[in-house]
Design a protein around this nucleic acid. Sequence first.
DNA 1: CAATCAGTCTAATGATCGTTAGAATGTTTG
DNA 2: CAAACATTCTAACGATCATTAGACTGATTG
Lengths: 223, 223
Amino acid sequence: MDNRTVKHLLYEQVARIGRAVSSPKRLELLELLAQSDKTVEELAGELSVDVKLTSAHLKALREARLVTVRRQGKYMVYRLSGEDVAALWVALREVAEEHLLELQLQLDRMARDPGALASVTRKALLKQARRGEIVMIDVRPEAEFETAHLPFARSMPLAELKRRLAELPKSRQIVAYCRGPFCMLAGEAVKILQGRGFRARKLADGISEWRAAGMRLESAATD
Amino acid sequence: MDNRTVKHLLYEQVARIGRAVSSPKRLELLELLAQSDKTVEELAGELSVDVKLTSAHLKALREARLVTVRRQGKYMVYRLSGEDVAALWVALREVAEEHLLELQLQLDRMARDPGALASVTRKALLKQARRGEIVMIDVRPEAEFETAHLPFARSMPLAELKRRLAELPKSRQIVAYCRGPFCMLAGEAVKILQGRGFRARKLADGISEWRAAGMRLESAATD
DNA sequence: CAATCAGTCTAATGATCGTTAGAATGTTTG
DNA sequence: CAAACATTCTAACGATCATTAGACTGATTG
């Protein structure tokens, strides 16, 4: 086997990973799985696409070894095959944000939305949360919170937010976060809170961004 | 514009990057461009493919904003649009190495090749080179060396190696490196050197790996 | 200014991908 | 063990992609 053939095989393997992350739906699946393990049904629901199509995309991700499956009762539960996969998603998204003008414009528009939190560093935020100067809320579904969440954050799923407003203080700043910069949950939460007279802002980071920056996370087990 | 539409647009943009890195030829182009700026002709030559096809692939990379072009006389010179693009290539390759069994087997086979240097840390290597205990040679074409090279390395392009053997010591260990783990130049060099009685080993790292690990590089200007 | 040269654009080929519907598989539940 | 259910596999459609050859563009050179 000559050099060029070997070389071609090597690049071909890496391109398999590239092909796996070349579809918007598969990227969305990866981001969801970075939050917590999920069944095909759950994933299909989040993406609002057919279960069959979701299954086909998951198969592609499985063939690139980016996810693994296990059976749990009658459900198939998918899981990212490593933290490096979530990091790859973050790296891809950051390159896209850096170089694609269209994406930058879209993100700017989101950032100008009610109460985006741009300039505060992660460490400063952590310090404020530790001291109780701000209240950090995680507005993702509870299962995702239990898998991993930011330190000092309290679970307050968007679906329950309106019912549980009494648990939140009006005196202190509230910081909401969700799955990452592309996720709309925190934006929704902030809109609701501000409408009810709370001082609320949103944080663009999610679990993967936080971890990729080398910051520590907590999970239900460590609480 | 509703949430789902915005979301779709965002993921679609990132998928553009994914699509750009989903072809082995384009990945090879990115790695070559991570070494130094190059013309279409040079790139086509390195890949041993038609100039027309190379141009088409470069167009795809340009549309994903991963490379930029400038005209220089009658040549079009391509350049990576940022260090983060080289870092993305490294991240992709590392995920592939970690998860794709086929790729691991292939790399193992290469590692068992004459004199792979696996266990030495980058810092230890640097220290040995600084002290002159080893001789680091960069076997890439000279233009790539001039753009950036590892500290304490000497340019010794593979094409000139046989003619310039007299410049190398038989008393000390020689460490050859090239473009990265997928590049064959260093392996070739080691084979030649060992055949002539030199103590030679190869380093898998190239410029991008070295930089991605947070290590400093040198360029012709800083020499 | 005509000839040359590097590179891109256009058109056409077959191969691959995304999507959908229908059949098949394997597990749980009565 | 039969019915219900979650998921995957198979087949088929059109859309997109890789590749090639031929026409075209823009700069350089005589």
